[in-house]
Design a protein around this nucleic acid. Sequence first.
DNA 1: CGCATTATTGATGTCAATCAAGCGCAGTGG
DNA 2: CCACTGCGCTTGATTGACATCAATAATGCG
Lengths: 263, 263
Amino acid sequence: MAGRDVRFHLQGGAEAAMTWAPDHPLDMLIRKLESIAHLSAEERRAIAGLPTLVRLLKAGQDIVRDDDRPSQCCLVLEGWACRYKLISQGKRQIFSFHVPGDIPDLQSLNLKAMDHSLCALTSTKVAFIPHHSVLALTARHPRIAAIFWRDTLVEAAIFREWMVGMGRRTASQAIAHQICELYLKLKAVGLAENHLYRLPVTQSDIADALGLTNVHVNRVLRELRTKGLVTIVGGTLRIHDWRELTGFCEFDPTYLHLERQAA
Amino acid sequence: MAGRDVRFHLQGGAEAAMTWAPDHPLDMLIRKLESIAHLSAEERRAIAGLPTLVRLLKAGQDIVRDDDRPSQCCLVLEGWACRYKLISQGKRQIFSFHVPGDIPDLQSLNLKAMDHSLCALTSTKVAFIPHHSVLALTARHPRIAAIFWRDTLVEAAIFREWMVGMGRRTASQAIAHQICELYLKLKAVGLAENHLYRLPVTQSDIADALGLTNVHVNRVLRELRTKGLVTIVGGTLRIHDWRELTGFCEFDPTYLHLERQAA
DNA sequence: CGCATTATTGATGTCAATCAAGCGCAGTGG
DNA sequence: CCACTGCGCTTGATTGACATCAATAATGCG
C-alpha cells in the first residue's frame, strides 16, 4: 500500500504537489482518539491503515469552503486551523480552533454540503483521507464509527460551552475559559505541559471566536496579565495559576469528555 | 411486544405513572427523521418497533440533569423542551429548543455523562426509549445509525448558527433569525404553516437562548412588530413578510440540512 | 376571584464597539 | 544596509447597544 502514487481531487480543483505519507500522520489521529476513547490494538492497526495524502498549507488558506461537497476528510497534523463563517460587512464568526489530531470536517461524511468554511490559521500540515476509505473502515469497525460519532458529539459540547461564553460570561471570563480549554485539548495530544503552550493565533482570531473586537481582546489579555493569571510572550502562553484561572472563569472540564483527566 | 408491562427507571428515581404507547409516538420520530433523510419502508418499520414509555411532564420539570448518566433517550411528542446549563448567580444559557419529533439527548448514547440539563418549557408529553433498544436498532440498521448521527450533526450546525447570532449579529437580527429557524423546524414536522406557529415560550426563555435580557427581548419584539415583520398574539407567532424578515437577518436555511426545502 | 407569572415601559448605568493613532517587528526590495 | 510596507499589537477617546433597576399593566392559572 504505502508508497503507491495516488492523486485525489482537492478543493477548488487545485491539484497540489503531494507526498505520500507513511504511518506517521495517523499516529496523531490515534493519539487524539485515545484521548476520548479506548482503542484496541486491532482498531489502532485498522486506523493506521487508512490512506493519507499529506499537504502543506499557508496561513489564511482555505481547506474547505462553505457549500463545498468534499469527498475526503482533513486531519490536522501540524499548525492550527479553524472553522468559520463570513457574514455581511466582512464580519466573521469562528466556531472552533483545530490543533493536530483533529478532523475538523468529519461531519462531511454524513452531511454532504458544508455549511461553513475551514481554513489554516498558521502554516499547516494536513492529511486528506478519502471518504470512502473512512466509510470502509467504519463499516468494518462499528466501534470506530461510534468513536468518530463521539468525537463530533464532543465538538458539539464545545460549541455549547462557547455559547455560554458568548451569552452569559464576561469577556474576561470567556477568554480565560478559552485559554483553559485549549490547554487541556493540547495537553490531551501531548502538545502542552506545565501550563504552557504555543498559541499561534492573532488577537483578531480570538475576537472572532468569542464575538468581541481585537481591541477588546487586547485589553482583556492585559487585564489577565495584570492579575498575574496568564502571560503571552512570543506566541507562547503561560498559565501562572491554574486554580485561580479556572476559578475565575468557572472552568469545569467535564464537557470535553476526556478519558484521562488532566489538571 | 406491544402492550407488555414494562417499567423503566426515571431520572431522580421518580417512578412515574406510565402508559404504554402504541405505534403513534414513533410516527412523530419518523416524520422528523424523514425531514433530514430518506427512510425505506423497512427502516420505518424497524423504528416503529422501538419500545416507548410515554410520560407527561409539567412546565419547568427537568427531564435529564447535568451529570446524570441516562439509560434511555427522550423523544418529545408534545410541547416544547430545551437544553440548558446553569452558571453562577442564577444565570442560564439555553442551547436549543426542542419540539415534537426531536430526541434532545440522543448524544447520551455515546457520551455517558450529561454535560447539561434538559427540561420541559411547557407541559410536555415525552416518550422514553431505552438505550439498549436504540443500540440494537442501529446495530441491525447501520443506515439508521448514520441518520441518528446526522441528526446530531444538524444540531451542531444549529449551535454554530446560534453562535453567529450571539457573536456577530445584532439582537434584532439574532431574534429574527431564531424566529425563521423555528418556523422551518416546525414546518418540517407539520407543526407550522402559512408563516404561523405556536410559540409557547416566555421572553425570558428567548433571552436565555440568545444571551440577552428579557427586557431587551421585549423591546426587540416590539421593534419587529413596529416594522411589520412579526407579531405575537396569545402565544401565536405570525411572520408577516418572510422575504423581508429573512433578508433582515440574513437567514439562509442551508445549515438545517432539510431534505425537502420549505419557504 | 385572587395570586403569581409574564409582559411592558422608563430611567440610568456599564461593558464592549468604534474610531483613531502610534508602535514594533518581519519581510521586501532598491 | 536601510527605507518602505504591511500586519499585528497597544492605547486613548468617544459612542452605542444592551444590562440593570424599578414600577406598573396584563395574563393566566388554581
